[in-house]
């Protein structure tokens, strides 16, 4: 878990076949979050590298009641920290992973 206390990992192997990734996010260090959240529950979701933004997904997670508004920035940051390296890898090696 980065300094956000949240862990984001690939829920499925990234085969570069399309722009969507399956990601899984969960709370690894509850002390680092400000608001209420669901402990010991992983949230799996798809993230489209071309159309989605981490902020938008974080907002939807707050709206769905998974996290408190005060933690949406941390959720967005943990998603961004995971998807940015994948985006960069794909830009360097468009021929696929």
């Amino acid at each position: 878990a980065e300094d956000t206390g949240l862990r984001v990992e690939l829920a499925e192997e990234d085969d570069c076949s399309n722009s969507s990734l399956a990601l899984r996010l969960w709370v690894e260090d509850p002390k680092k979050l400000k608001g209420k959240h669901k402990d010991n529950e992983a949230i799996e979701f798809s993230f489209n590298l071309e159309t989605d933004t981490p902020e938008e997904v974080a907002y939807e997670m707050v709206k769905s009641g998974f996290f408190h508004e005060s933690d949406s920035k941390a959720v967005a940051k943990s998603i961004r920290d995971r998807v940015t390296p994948i985006k960069k890898t794909r830009e360097k090696k468009p021929a696929g992973c």
Partner: peptide, 27 residues
């Protein structure tokens, strides 16, 4: 499984399931 819950928000699907025990031990 009964432990998995699906939530939809703005057209996005979130699948909520217990964090695998092995991952919790890592933390």
């Amino acid at each position: 499984s009964s432990l998995t819950q699906v939530v939809h928000s703005a057209g996005r699907r979130f699948i909520v399931s217990p964090v695998p025990e092995s991952r919790l031990r890592e933390s």
